[in-house]
């Protein structure tokens, strides 16, 4: 994709967000719902968005920041295209979920909370995804992978990489 295209896409998103924010009633109680809306659209809260929200609700910027940083849900950096979430709930812990987390960290060479330099993967820990009977559990994107084992980690990542390469090859072929 050309550089300008990415830029204009970004601008379009920002414009969309500004108009959506403007549609909210100027009430303090809307702060969290607005932040949630932005995060849903953009997958994270960029600094401009925080300013937009503060301006709309007519509250200090720091106040928005203070609230946003309190909650686990909000992130301030874009996640990877394939966010890996490793369950660290009680059942998964007892079944050695930390070993799974470590394996993802080792294979992707990033730590929990980080994104790979190519923006393909990010790792985070989540609390109980609600399928404890399948413990230990990891999610890649929205797909749940139950009964995880360290040896399954590599296979899962490999599959995603292969699919990506395949898609790219097909794209190149299509463009020809």
């Amino acid at each position: 994709m050309a550089h300008e295209e990415i830029l204009s896409e970004q601008e379009a998103i920002e414009k969309d967000i500004r108009s959506r924010v403007a549609a909210f009633e100027k009430a303090r109680g809307n702060l969290i719902p607005i932040l949630q809306m932005i995060q849903e659209k953009q997958a994270y809260l960029p600094p401009e968005a925080i300013n937009t929200v503060a301006a709309h609700l007519e509250i200090p910027v720091c106040e928005v920041y203070g609230v946003a940083t309190f909650y686990n849900q909000f992130r301030f950096h874009p996640p990877g295209r394939h966010p890996v979430k490793v369950c660290m709930g009680t059942a998964c812990h007892v079944k050695a979920g930390d070993v799974i987390l470590e394996n993802f960290e080792r294979k992707l060479e990033i730590r929990e909370g980080q994104t790979t330099p190519d923006r393909e993967f990010s790792i985070e820990r989540v609390a109980c995804v609600g399928c404890c009977a399948l413990a230990p559990v990891a999610l890649i994107g929205d797909t749940v992978h139950g009964h995880m084992a360290p040896s399954k980690v590599e296979g899962l990542l490999l599959r995603i990489r292969i699919e990506k390469e395949k898609a790219e090859r097909e794209k190149v072929r299509g463009e020809r």
Binding site: I50, N51, A54, I59, P60, V61, C62, E63, V64, Y65, G66, T69, F70
Partner: peptide
């Protein structure tokens, strides 16, 4: 009438922040 500084982050990481000022 308004606070230009705030608590930010959570738990042991809590700090006072002037973010954006």
């Amino acid at each position: 009438g308004i606070a230009l500084l705030t608590f930010a982050k959570r738990g042991i990481d809590t700090v006072i922040s002037f973010y954006g000022e």
